[in-house]
Amino acid sequence: MKIAIGIEYHGAHFQGWQSQPNGAGVQDALERAIALVAGEQVRLHAAGRTDSGVHALMQVAHFETSIVRPLNAWVRGSNAHLPPWVRVLWASEVADDFHARFSARARSYQYVLYNHPVAPASQHGRVGWYHRPLAVAAMQQAMQTLLGEHDFSAFRASECQASSPVRTLSQAALKAQGRYLIFHFQANAFLQHQIRNMVGALVYVGQGKLDVSAFAELLQQRDRRLAPPTFMPDGLYFTGVQYEAAWQLPPCSADWDAFNTD
């Protein structure tokens, strides 16, 4: 049978989603735990790969197994063998033709930026930080130029292995919530470091180092060397995946906004 699972994790404790030779990937921890429940080795396939230090409020993955277990056994049993910074949230049996990555229609991320002169102690490793006031309205205006289908080479990591730099961004929004700036992005897929690179450029807009037209020009120039530095991974969260309703999955999205940010 094929099982889909929803996953939450604190990325600071891992070297990204993907399996690592030293076993320090999120995938490694989950495969070890699920194998103890199944009594056999399993291979996980995720909706999207997150980099080292990047978190997930709702990652979706699937695995195949010849072992029959109650669905709550995949949740409770796996969590009993996982470190506290990663949890299986739900499990659902899915059709044989479901694939966590290839069945996904869109993926969503949020970047949470703490904008205050002093870095937060209680949120260390969980949010990005910038110490000077930022012009939110200018950043919001610049984000609108990202919507639609574009060649995002200006915001693509040099080591990105995607076959094409073209992506379709369906949502790009920013709101201030107390001392926090919360960026929300949704696209059919993302390039390596794309969001952190876009946030880095948007912070330049907020500082006044780039105006909106210069930000738009960066996108059109398609040259990563001309764009501002990549922003820290701490505040980036994978928040959900969009699938067709026909797959009958549990809720596949979560929202950092639901946390108390007073």
Rank of each mutant, 00 (worst) to 15 (best):
T50G: 08
T50V: 10
T50H: 12
D51N: 07
S52C: 02
G53E: 08
V54I: 12
H55R: 09
A56S: 12
L57Q: 09
L57R: 14
L57M: 13
M58V: 00
Q59D: 04
Q59V: 00
V60S: 01
V60E: 00
A61M: 02
F63M: 01
T65H: 01
T65F: 00
S66G: 11
S66Y: 06
S66C: 06
V68P: 00
V68S: 11
R69N: 01
L71V: 02
L71P: 00
N72S: 08
A73L: 01
A73Q: 09
R76F: 01
G77R: 04
G77I: 03
N79G: 05
N79I: 03
A80L: 07
A80H: 13
H81Y: 15
H81P: 02
L82C: 02
P83Y: 06
P83I: 08
P83N: 07
W85A: 03
V86Q: 09
V86G: 04
V86S: 05
R87M: 05
R87Y: 02
V88T: 11
L89K: 13
W90F: 03
W90E: 02
A91K: 12
S92E: 14
S92R: 14
S92M: 11
V94S: 07
A95Q: 15
D96C: 07
D96Y: 08
D96R: 14
D96I: 09
D96V: 11
H99T: 03
A100D: 10
A100Q: 09
R101C: 07
F102D: 13
S103A: 15
R105T: 04
R105Y: 06
A106S: 15
A106H: 14
R107P: 12
R107N: 10
S108E: 15
Y109T: 09
Y111M: 07
Y111G: 02
V112L: 14
V112Q: 08
L113M: 13
N115M: 07
H116P: 03
P117T: 03
P120F: 11
A121T: 10
S122D: 04
S122V: 13
H124V: 09
H124N: 12
V127F: 02
W129S: 03
W129I: 05
W129V: 04
H131Q: 08
R132V: 10
R132H: 10
P133I: 11
P133R: 12
P133D: 10
L134C: 04
A135M: 03
A135Q: 13
Q141M: 05
